[in-house]
Amino acid sequence: MEMKEMFKEFDFNEKPKKVISVINGLNLPDDYLAFISKHNGGEGPLGENNYGRFYKIEELEAINEEYDVQNSWPGYVVIGGIDDVLWAYNPEKKVYCQIDSCNTDEDTYYTISNNFEEFLIKMDGELSD
């Protein structure tokens, strides 16, 4: 599935005034920054089976502090999610993943992908019947 198709019913935010590339001392990846610089996140259906939100770039630092990400999931930056599922990125490992917000054990992280597009496609695929 192409990205355009993945986001066909997604409700995007307005473009950000400024793109921040470092959150809590961690560098955000280029593929995510390319997405956020055009859309600044949003909320809605993703692909055929998923639903969620990507936070606005200017809200990421506050959201990561609110979730206490640096202590609960060190090395990760939360970029979105839905309900108890967080979508995160680890710049050192260069991976995107899903995290159960009630669990801090790295062995339980799932949908691990090396790029943004693959991450979205894998998430959608994991939710299909």
Rank of each mutant, 00 (worst) to 15 (best):
K56T: 05
D84H: 12
D84F: 11
Y51F: 10
Y96P: 07
E43G: 10
L60W: 01
E59K: 13
F12P: 00
E2K: 15
V22F: 10
G80T: 00
K4A: 15
G42P: 02
M1K: 15
T111D: 15
G25F: 00
W87Q: 09
N27A: 12
I23E: 02
V78C: 11
D107F: 06
K56C: 05
V19K: 08
F35P: 07
K17R: 14
D105M: 08
L86Y: 09
E5H: 09
A62Q: 05
S128N: 10
D124H: 01
K17Y: 13
N24D: 13
E117F: 08
Q70N: 09
L26T: 08
Y89N: 04
K94V: 10
Y89I: 00
E43C: 12
H39S: 03
S113F: 06
E92L: 15
G42V: 00
V78G: 08
F35H: 09
K17M: 14
E58N: 11
D107M: 10
Y67A: 02
P74N: 00
M3L: 15
W73Q: 02
I82P: 05
K94E: 14
E43W: 11
I36S: 12
L86P: 04
L28Q: 03
G125K: 14
L33C: 06
E126G: 08
N103L: 04
S37M: 03
Y32G: 05
P45Q: 03
R53Q: 13
G125F: 09
D129H: 09
E5Y: 13
D11A: 11
A62R: 04
L28E: 03
N90A: 07
E117L: 10
L127T: 02
K94S: 12
T104W: 03
Q98R: 15
A34L: 14
D83K: 12
F54Q: 00
E14Y: 05
R53N: 09
F119R: 03
I112K: 12
E5I: 12
D11P: 01
G52A: 00
A34V: 14
P91A: 04
Y110D: 07
Y110H: 07
E43Q: 12
F7N: 01
K8R: 09
N27R: 12
P29E: 03
P74F: 00
I63F: 00
N50Q: 06
V19S: 09
Y55V: 01
E61Q: 13
N50F: 09
D124Y: 00
K18V: 15
E117G: 05
E5L: 08
W73N: 01
L86W: 07
E59G: 06
K8F: 06
Y109V: 04
N115Y: 04
L26K: 06
G47Y: 01
S72T: 13
D11I: 10
T104R: 07
V69F: 02
P91N: 03
F54M: 01
E65G: 08
R53H: 07
L60S: 04
F10L: 09
G125M: 10
K8L: 10
I79L: 14
Y109P: 04
V77E: 04
Y110S: 05
